[in-house]
Design a protein around this nucleic acid. Structure first.
Lengths: 148, 148
DNA sequence: CCTGATAAGTTTGTGATACGAACCAATTTA
DNA sequence: TAAATTGGTTCGTATCACAAACTTATCAGG
């Protein structure tokens, strides 16, 4: 609100489009999660941990949750054999979390389900457009820190 | 995932990019929701209803939830004055849901917060790229039926 | 070295989510 | 018009998510 109109109206349109896309994706993900006896949040955690090994605090940042919430979430996931906890090599206060073999397997299956679910959406774009879209999304999201 | 499924392998990359973008957006949305004393799901419902008047069943489809879950969700939102319920004009079994004035106001505020939160992400693309991305996302998501 | 001040995680308690199963009422099918 | 089917709600149970209080560690400053 301090600086107005700075974001070209294109930015507003982009935010809206991105939100719409995210909402559609969330709908699909919510269904997929439920089908696999997971909550959307748990699915998100698995996806995020798929190519990362994070400290609890960092995962909290990715998910947008409170620390206390994550404790229970990870405890349940660990009890189900989806993730492991390990003490941080340097900071003895910290705990690192990462996927188990089982977790990786499940994550891969979930991705396949998502791909199947979003196929009808993707088909609306020709190969060239798909390529461009993937490129732009990747560029925008690369190490994106949204913070507050 | 080197091998291609049915479509081009670009599709896999696109699914991944879209998922990444959705995860980043969800992180921001989760924080925004919590800051406004809403759950992510409730925020999603508000956003979806912003430009639509839907029957419970249709909203269930958008959100990817079970009907019984939505009943409670909408009841609480209604109790807070965010949405209204009204009998469907034709089908007497059905109930339509739509935002109240208060709900619209809140939804607008939430969008502003999202825009602020995603600004750093958007800034990684130049205006032309932003325009292209918005266009492609809009095209892909237009009346998207993800279904299972 | 100590002594706060901070940071990382966990525990606890409470309300909100989300599912499935059972149920009622209205609509559709046969 | 009887038999499905559909649209929503209610109920019971497990998970989710927050805030507040607490335990260890790490980090400053003197």
């Amino acid at each position: 609100m301090p600086d107005a109109t700075q974001p070209t109206s294109d930015t507003a349109a982009l935010i809206d489009a991105l939100a719409q896309a995210a909402f559609v994706t969330m709908g699909a993900l919510t269904r997929i999660a439920a089908d696999n006896d997971l909550s959307l949040t748990q699915l998100r955690a698995l996806a995020i941990l798929r190519d990362r090994r994070l400290r609890m605090t960092d995962l909290v940042e990715y998910l947008g949750l409170e620390k206390s919430t994550l404790t229970g979430l990870i405890s349940r996931a660990e009890a189900r054999g989806l993730v492991h906890r390990a003490p941080h090599p340097v900071d003895r206060r910290a705990t690192e979390v990462f996927l188990s073999t089982h977790g990786h397997t499940l994550a891969a299956a979930l991705e396949a389900e998502l791909a199947a679910s979003l196929a009808p959406v993707m088909e609306k774009l020709d190969p060239a457009e798909q390529h461009t879209l993937a490129h732009l999304l990747a560029k925008a999201v690369a190490t994106a820190s949204t913070r507050t």
